[in-house]
Design a protein around this nucleic acid. Structure first.
Lengths: 217, 217
DNA sequence: GTCTATACTTGGATAGAC
DNA sequence: GTCTATCCAAGTATAGAC
């Protein structure tokens, strides 16, 4: 056991100065989770990186676990918003795979998916953390589902694929590819897969043009 | 930082008594990794579970990291052997998916894949650990590749699919499904996926019967 | 050779200074 | 309200007992 209990809602909303300190700590927590992993994300390590006293973590967040959750929140919100923007201009499966590849690349380089992976893997060490992490992962599955659904609209696959299960698989694959890529230091195989997926998506699109007008049922 | 450096080959081969102690520690390490995760797998926690003095870990393995690697070795070897046996009786994609589902179920229930996931995620916290873990994950990808290859022999997909990349994806998916299933406490969605995969595999098999004699090139 | 008691280091948390 | 100095628990590691 390393991190202590998960208090709820200790993210006090205070002054300007306080907000700045919190922001620095959250940023340092993200970087530490990326480079040292959950097990290496101690109060001291994080505070050192931010150039701040480690006690501040407990004052502002109540516990290390809560700071890490705040870091997860920050990453999840920012990325999800960016993903939404990327995807909004997309029509059809091939463009979607293309967008997914770009997002994976920038995620991988910045170490953002690592934050998710580390928090999921680390959750089992702290009582109560699992549920908190789960509630922050859920939006990703929702996002995957609605995006897949939208991109399939108008193609012959519309309505025949189990979207919910597919979304689950996509998220799982995304996390797994990140783990393997990070471990070997080489995300190469992941990008080979994206390239195959693009061919497959093109195949689907060439059967029937994307976004062809569809008869109302 | 929690675990210390990774010494090489400290797994001294000694007496009967020594072997028994090591076995108990490895077993306790596996259980601890499963239930508490990498971050919770301290020398004291593991030794307590085994009912042994924590100093024994350093005497027998040199460091906590080395004990955890020994645990990973044990799980990987035992499971890989069992997987090999399961798969040896298999012919064709559908039976393969069937076998994979059985293996995933027993792995998930026993927490064996969790050991892999936790070691991969935890690797980044200890210098040198990443490479050691990577070399122990590699056989899984090899196994996936040769198994997929064999099951496709004689089907119309033989030779057209990028086996290496597919194997990478399968391992990644396996790890990702484990993470998500473990997090939510419910591996359900993973099994839904297996069920879809079975339908897909049946489809492939019905195009051309499995293991149909193939013309030599 | 095997194990235990003990030394030392790092980590979480808070009482009290500003 | 914000932060720092300090405390105690938990972790790694080893010197020495058996």
């Amino acid at each position: 056991m390393a991190k202590a209990g998960v208090a709820s809602g200790v993210t006090a909303g205070g002054s300007q100065r306080s907000a700045g300190t919190r922001r620095q700590l959250v940023q340092a927590a993200i970087e530490t989770l990326s480079s040292e992993g959950f097990a290496g994300a101690s109060a001291r390590t994080i505070a050192d990186r931010a150039g701040l006293n480690q006690g501040l973590i407990f004052y502002h967040f109540g516990s290390v676990a809560n700071l890490l959750l705040a870091a997860l929140d920050a990453v999840s919100e920012e990325r999800l918003q960016l993903y939404g923007a990327e995807v909004s201009t997309v029509s059809g499966p091939r463009q979607l795979v293309d967008a997914a590849e770009r997002m994976f690349r920038s995620d991988f380089d910045a170490g953002y998916v690592t934050v998710l992976v580390e928090m999921i893997a680390g959750a089992s060490s702290t009582p109560g953390l699992g549920a908190e992490v789960a509630s922050r992962i859920a939006p990703w599955k929702d996002f995957a589902r609605s995006t897949i659904e939208a991109s399939l609209r108008g193609t012959p696959l519309d309505g025949v694929l189990p979207i919910g299960d597919l979304a689950h698989a996509v998220v799982a694959l995304y996390l797994g590819l990140e783990m393997l890529g990070h471990l070997g230091g080489d995300p190469g195989p992941a990008f080979d897969l994206f390239s195959h997926a693009k061919q497959l998506a093109s195949l689907v699109e060439n059967l029937i043009p994307p976004n062809a007008p569809k008869e109302p049922a």
